[in-house]
């Protein structure tokens, strides 16, 4: 069942605990579901609806708004070729054409071996490195056609697996934020109108000083 597995339920609870309102955790939890299954399944969305306290229709409403969430399976490597204006000026269209030919798929498609899904993407904030692309959101700069082909060969051979985790993993576990319980200030409850302690106390102190 592609609901969240027990480990991820634990993590989901930790994430939920950071927000004043549970629905705020929805996008991070959708990422978690996508990390688990490689895409966001209907079952996962129903599970998230339970976790954040809304209807599945609302979860789908959010999920479907955002480009990164895939509601159908994609290959373990999602190759996004940037077609933003800077990349456009420096050959993005040509790179894309080359990619379609060499992979034998149109944008949006997945290669016959199921490994690679090709997409066009809007500006990736690497404009000075045009044309650029991302594989599972890891950058490749100034990509020439040959470099693209080499990249695909390496991906298929699993040579880049250390650098590029499978689709869905945005941050590896060790690098995720983890707020230790003894250090947490805690989420700021919405309906408790109290002024933060330091705001006035320091003012007093400075008045005293002045």
């Amino acid at each position: 069942m592609p609901r969240l597995n027990p480990d991820n339920i634990e993590l989901a609870k930790e994430i939920l605990g950071r927000y004043p309102r549970p629905k705020s955790a929805l996008i991070p939890l959708l990422h978690l579901a996508q990390e688990q299954d490689g895409w966001v399944t209907d079952d996962a969305m129903e599970h998230l609806a339970e976790l954040v306290g809304c209807t599945p229709a609302e979860v789908l409403g959010t999920c479907s708004f955002y480009e990164m969430f895939k509601r159908e399976p994609v290959g373990p490597y999602l190759v996004n070729i940037c077609h933003g204006i800077s990349c456009h000026l420096l050959g993005a269209d040509e790179l894309l054409e080359h990619a379609e030919q060499s992979l034998g798929v149109k944008t949006g498609g997945t290669t016959a071996d199921g490994k690679i899904t090709l997409e066009e993407a809007e500006c990736q904030a690497a404009c000075t490195e045009a044309p650029c692309l991302q594989v599972n959101y890891r950058y490749r700069y100034k990509v020439a056609n040959e470099a693209f082909d080499q990249l695909i060969t390496d991906l298929r051979a699993g040579k880049l697996d250390d650098e590029i985790p499978p689709h869905g993993t945005l941050a590896r576990r060790a690098t995720r934020q983890h707020i230790p319980a003894d250090r947490a200030a805690g989420p700021a409850a919405v309906d408790v109108n109290v002024e933060p302690v330091w705001l006035s106390r320091n003012a007093d102190a400075s008045e005293a000083k002045g």
Binding site: Y19, P180, R183, A184
Partner: peptide, 29 residues
């Protein structure tokens, strides 16, 4: 930064406490 006492409860031993929650977007300009 949490471990070093810069973020979280009683930052640098003062009465200033705050969490910074890292939130991920999902693709929408």
């Amino acid at each position: 930064a949490y471990a070093a006492g810069y973020v979280g409860k009683n930052i640098l031993g003062t009465d200033y406490s705050i969490d910074i929650v890292l939130h991920w977007g999902a693709g929408a300009y």
